[in-house]
Every structure is written in structure tokens, then in C-alpha cells.
Simulated assay, not measured.
Amino acid sequence: MLTTRHGVRPLGAADLADFLALSDLDPVVNVFVDHRARSTNLEPRWLGGEVWGRYVDGRLVAACHVGANLVPVNASPDDARAFAERALGRARTVSTIVGPHEAVRAFWQVVSGTWGPPRETRWRQPHLELTAAPAVEADPRVRRTTRQDLDLLYPACVAMYTEEVGLSPEAGGGADLYRARVLQLVSRGWSFARFDGGRLVFKAEVACMSPHAAQVQGVWVAPDRRGEGLATSGMAAVADIVRREIAPTVSLYVNEWNTPARRAYEAVGFEETARFSTVMF
């Protein structure tokens, strides 16, 4: 077995079973990396990056997804520091570090002097899960979107992303790529919305899924319709469809300061199970 400093080495297709077993130790928190591993077979050409594993006594104990998103997997602070030391040996290519708070913080403490300053940091984001039927009535007007909805859906996706991230996904010529991503989610049946009077007033998407969970992203309500409960009943509808047709558990993470969103998710029945952190460049 080829190893490097601190027992860290790149993983490949031959390591898929070990990686999935590691991910299964916390399958809902790890839904993103589980989805990436299953859909790419850990092949770098499909990953658009690498997945690193850390071995102790020949056993895989932690991993780190290194693509556009850098995501620690079941990493202790010591594991995260080992991954960070490997990361310092290469130029920063990631746009976001995201994952469980303690691992992200430990990683960032090592690389911040070289990789900083970040555009924004969000240090304590509640990670939420729903494992039962929604606690409120679902909005019957929420449905899966189709390609015919794109003229209304795409501007809402751009608005949500810009509001959430502070930067338009179309910046720097990214419109075609982002539009393709929106279409991909629509074609998978992972895009949901409610339309009133010829306009989109609520939307959400599934970002990734595994046999264990589906992670929801992009929850958005038209600004002039906020405060009406559309997010609560809309998320109940999305969660109901997702649990019935995609995966048994629905997860998401939310900014700590977003009180309206947190109240809506709590009303639906989501419960906090972890804290995430995000560092954006």
C-alpha cells in the first residue's frame, strides 16, 4: 500500500468498499461524500479532484473529499490536521471547505495562513434531519419541476444562490454551467416548486442522495411572499415526496442566524443532529 506522511494517501476504485464503510459510520452527515463516491467510483477523472484516506495500522479511519468542495469524512481534529498538512503541499483549488465543525476548524487552523483570507466564514450551522412524516400539512401545490418550468425556475435559482452565497452563480461566465446544473436536478426529479399565477413562489432541490438520506438545498421563497408560511408547508411537501420516493431521511444544514428558516424547519419536524462549518473563498 502506498502511503505518505501521517498515513494519508489518495483513494481509488479499489478502496470504494472501505470508503463506503467509513461513510456509513455517520451516513446522514456523510450523504454528500457517499453520493460522490457511488457516482464516481472514486475515479479522479469523474471526481474532478481526489479523495484522500488516512490509515492507522492498515485501517481506513478518516477521509477527505478534495474537489470544488473540501469535505472531511469522519475526521477527528488530528485527522483533519493531517489532511491539512497534505493540502499545504499543493495550490488551493477548492472554493469551499464544509463539514462537521470540529474537523473544519482544525483543518482551517493549519491552512489559514496560506489559504486565507476567505470571502466568508460560517462557523456554526445546525445540521438537521427528518426521519418521520412531517409534523405539519404539506402544501399540495408543490410539485416536481419540468423543463417547461425553466424560464421561471432558473431566475429563482440564481436569486437564491446570490442571496445565500453573496455572489451570482453567473459571475465570471458561469451561467451555462449553472443552468446545466439546474437542468440536471430537474431531469433527476430532484427539483420542486410551487407556482402561483404564473410565477414561482417557493422552491427547493435535493442536492445529493444515498441509500440512507437525501440532502436538501436551495430553499427559497419569493421575497414578497415571505412570512406567509410557504417555506413551512413547502418543505413539508418536499420532505414527504423525498422520504416516499428518494431516501428515508431528509437532511440539510442552515445558517445559525437564519431564524425564519430555522423556525420553519423546526415546525416541519427537523431536529438538529450536528453542527457544520463553512469557509468560502
Rank of each mutant, 00 (worst) to 15 (best):
P100R: 15
L177Q: 15
R179H: 10
D79P: 02
N255W: 14
P27Q: 03
V242A: 05
V31R: 04
G173E: 07
A156T: 10
R5C: 10
V206R: 05
A17E: 13
T232E: 06
D15Y: 07
T131I: 14
T232P: 02
W257H: 15
A261L: 13
T146S: 14
R81Q: 12
L2W: 15
K203W: 01
T249W: 03
W123T: 02
F195S: 01
F281M: 09
E170T: 12
A175L: 13
R81M: 09
H6F: 08
Q217P: 05
A91V: 07
G198R: 06
V8D: 00
T232K: 01
S191C: 07
T121M: 10
G12Y: 03
A138T: 07
Q217S: 12
P117F: 06
G49P: 01
V142Y: 00
A14N: 08
R38T: 11
A135K: 11
R199V: 10
D149M: 11
A106T: 12
L150F: 15
A264N: 02
V219E: 06
A214G: 07
I241G: 05
D24C: 07
N258G: 02
F107P: 01
G48I: 09
T4Q: 14
L47M: 04
L70P: 01
R194C: 07
V56A: 13
R105Q: 14
G229V: 04
V73I: 08
G49Y: 00
P117I: 05
Q109F: 01
V66L: 10
W257A: 11
L183H: 06
R45W: 09
P140A: 11
A80R: 02
L167V: 15
F83E: 05
P118D: 02
R225S: 13
R263V: 11
D139T: 08
R179K: 15
V219D: 04
L177W: 10
E120A: 15
V111F: 03
M160W: 15
G7V: 06
M209D: 15
D196F: 13
P223I: 08
S23W: 15
V56F: 08
W52T: 02
G53Q: 08
D151S: 10
R9L: 02
T259M: 10
R243H: 11
P77Q: 12
E245H: 11
V104G: 04
S210E: 07
G113N: 00
T249D: 05
C208H: 06
V111W: 00
A193Y: 02
V51R: 03
G113L: 04
Y161A: 13
R38Q: 13
I97Q: 00
G174N: 14
R92L: 03
Q125C: 10
H6S: 13
R9C: 06
R45L: 08
A239L: 04
H127V: 14
T278P: 12
S233I: 05
H35K: 14
T232M: 09
V8I: 14
G234T: 01
E228A: 11
T4V: 14
